[in-house]
Design a binder for these strands. Structure first.
Lengths: 247, 247
DNA sequence: GTAAGTACACTGGTCTGACCAGTAGCCTGC
DNA sequence: GCAGGCTACTGGTCAGACCAGTGTACTTAC
């Protein structure tokens, strides 16, 4: 006979548990309201501080939101990737992940997203991509900030077409971290217009592949584009790590 | 001139911010201790309840841990994927991410890990994989739990060889979520021994491909193995989503 | 009748002070 | 030198208080 070690269960944890259960089970739907803190306090039979600590935890998990003064009580939120985003961001910054690893990861995610997009795209999706490409083309003359925004939009369309939110969120997070790491270097980039034109040409190629439903082609182009754009910031010794992904 | 809407910043949020900053900047390393709540309260100039709510948030993010009675104060934890796991799990249970998407993601990650492993492996890595495969072989006769552990160990070696912590962590998280989603179905799986043998044969094949430095072959085998093992749990209508990844 | 204005009851955010069970480390007594 | 107890302090919880802010319902003015 073996016994399991027991961990003391805090009062606020049991409160979190019950409310979380109510939310995931669907008993509490997004938009609905929790009772007020004082009401919860009598329902659970604990002090207000305990209730508040529980609500803080749920709020940190992006499950509820409370606004002072609102007599309707804390609001139950729809599930969102925000919490996932935060924890992945934290992990990426902590786990001594270098630019090479990040770029590797991004090539994998972006490549896969393009592959799926090429295989799953509908005609509507194609017109969406056409429009996104068009606003990128307009963005070239409107300066880097505008172009960058259009670029992000294009990638969001791709991500949406690939129909996998996990892929979308991860890619977005990694993209953010990569940009944070090299933003100071980007500041000094000269000749931005020609960079934008090259980037635009890449996207047009990718779009052609997607239109042709050529998944592996689109994936290869996407990965190559990332490599061409960012490899220069990766220490030369680590660039071989990226090569296997280009084949 | 445009003005940005301002959101009121809670006191506890500023406390969270400062402590988090200290941790990610490395000023506070894992294992080190935070001052006691009463001490923090004077340092930040806020009440204890505010401090406690801040600590709860940090604790929910798996950044610190506090034990009652410990005079050394709350402990700073090493970055761990636990928070990522939780938020991904939560998101997965909310309808947006189904088993199909999770499996898609896992095939992408696992496939890429195998590809990188095959291209980057050294001779030492190969012996490590040989050993891992051997303990899987032994595990077959020792029951499913033991076999499963050996299986995880094999995948960890692969992940390590691929030299990308992001890949490792993400894969581990997704793997856990997938298993949690179908664990009840796994309970009823009959004929486990033959399943284990098939799984073992798959791994032997993968190892051959890695030994031959055949990256795309290893990736394809890995994805195919996942598909063969889990596709039956995916709703039939969504299985086409997985097919593009097998080519 | 409607629109504007106001009063009120209640909300969440914060602070203070208190009590408890539990821990680490010191400090005895041997 | 060591076992055992003592103590100061910890985090967990509660109670009660105050404040600024909100939504609602009621009143008022037209």
């Amino acid at each position: 006979m073996r016994f399991e070690p027991v961990a003391p269960v805090r009062a606020y944890e049991r409160v979190v548990e019950q409310i979380e259960q109510a939310v995931v089970s669907g008993a509490l739907k997004p938009g609905e309201r929790l009772p007020s803190e004082r009401e919860l306090m009598t329902q659970f039979g604990v002090g207000r501080s305990t209730i508040r600590e529980a609500l803080r935890v749920l709020q940190a998990a992006e499950m509820i939101r409370s606004r002072p003064g609102d007599p309707r009580g804390p609001e139950v939120l729809a599930a969102s990737p925000a919490a996932l985003h935060r924890s992945m961001h934290r992990l990426a910054r902590a786990e001594h992940v270098g630019l090479a690893e990040l770029l590797q990861f991004r090539m994998i995610l972006d490549g896969s997203a393009h592959l799926l997009a090429a295989e799953l795209r509908t005609e509507d999706d194609l017109t969406g991509l056409d429009e996104a490409l068009e606003s990128m083309r307009e963005g070239v003359s409107r300066g880097y900030a505008e172009f960058s925004r259009a670029d992000v939009a294009f990638h969001e369309v791709i991500a949406r077409i690939s129909r996998n939110p996990l892929l979308v969120v991860s890619e977005e997070v990694v993209r953010g971290v990569v940009l944070e790491l090299i933003e100071d270097k980007l500041e000094h980039a000269s000749n931005r217009t020609s960079l934008m034109r090259a980037w635009l040409a890449h996207h047009a190629e990718v779009l052609d592949a997607i239109r042709a439903a050529d998944g592996s082609g689109a994936a290869r182009l996407a990965k190559q584009a990332l490599y061409d754009n960012y490899a220069e910031y990766v220490p030369a010794g680590q660039r071989p790590l990226l090569a296997p992904l280009l084949r």
